[in-house]
Write a protein that binds this DNA or RNA. Structure first.
Lengths: 173, 173
DNA sequence: TATTGTTATACTCTATAACTATA
DNA sequence: TATAGTTATAGAGTATAACAATA
């Protein structure tokens, strides 16, 4: 009925009605981040997904392969190929779980941690451009709020990491 | 180098090193939102993607089909099926562009706007749970910051909408 | 009986190429 | 020549089902 006044400044404006659409905004920002980080993760086995799996392995975010799959939102059958290729590349390793002989502990190797650090360094540079419209405090706020949302959704349990074995601890870097 | 002190409270905590990983956080929040809104968009032709396409059509975010494809990050060949099915469902319509006979204007029908409003209503309820850990001011801040990031990335041009034809204006609801 | 990891198979989704019509 | 839209085909990606080992 009433015509929306579209006389506001058109510079840098999203179409009316989308600036409050959280689903749209998250999709746009997520995709923008993927595009920005694309080259940084291009040499990793499965691109962005391989990077996230490596992140999970290096930070011991999951107890075993199935849990990591849940965290990444992929099928456990897909996780096999994912870990297979990361393992072939020498970035992660499958260790037997002393507590459960069925499951495998996915741990980042030293080379994997190094590659991860390199990737994260490149991603940081890309993120600077992505977050250029935000101040330093706002960037911290954004991360903190996203973290609070992610933590409230128990997509993957935040259990203490049992991967700390006799070898080098990849979580300490 | 310096060992990060890991003595902070483990309640609701993501594994160390992930709480600052913007890529991880965006992926988690985006997926959490998709899962939360899943049932609300389940009856739309292509689920979440169909919902976003309908959002774009209703808000006239893109000039034509190709531009909408760019905004959604899908191939233009995929866009054909997407719009096809939305059109079959009577949610959008392809209109000839008076300025360019090659392109088609994708406009939401009245039924499409109604379905969109219903979906957005259901999604709002789901978002309340998703954002429960944030205060009202924080939720506004989050949307505003995401909006600023999305607007700074010119994934799709924010051009004035030429869809306002002789028929009912779907952008006014 | 349920779960972890694995494999093979079938399915869905996506992209490449080619075509028509317009610019 | 370049672009918008479409179609058909081939490829990549994904899930389903079945299996062995273990809880």
């Amino acid at each position: 009925m009433a015509e929306t006044s579209r006389t506001d400044s058109q510079s840098n404006a999203l179409p009316a009605g989308l600036e409050d659409n959280l689903g749209w905004l998250l999709a746009q920002c997520f995709r923008a981040h993927m595009i920005a980080a694309e080259t940084a993760v291009a040499d990793l086995p499965h691109g962005a997904r391989g990077y996230l799996a490596l992140c999970g392995a290096a930070t011991c975010s999951a107890r075993n392969q199935a849990e990591l799959a849940k965290q990444l939102g992929v099928d456990r059958t897909v996780m096999v190929y994912l870990v297979d290729d990361l393992e072939k590349a020498g970035l992660v390793e499958r260790l037997p779980d002393p507590a459960d002989r069925r499951s495998r502990l996915i741990r980042a190797t030293v080379a994997g941690v190094e590659r991860l650090n390199a990737a994260q360094h490149a991603i940081s540079a890309a993120e600077s451009a992505l977050l250029a419209t935000l101040g330093q405090d706002e960037q911290r706020q954004l991360r903190e709020m996203l973290h609070r949302i992610a933590a409230s959704q128990v997509l993957g349990p935040a259990a203490p990491c049992p991967n700390a074995g006799p070898g080098a601890d990849p979580c300490s870097s």
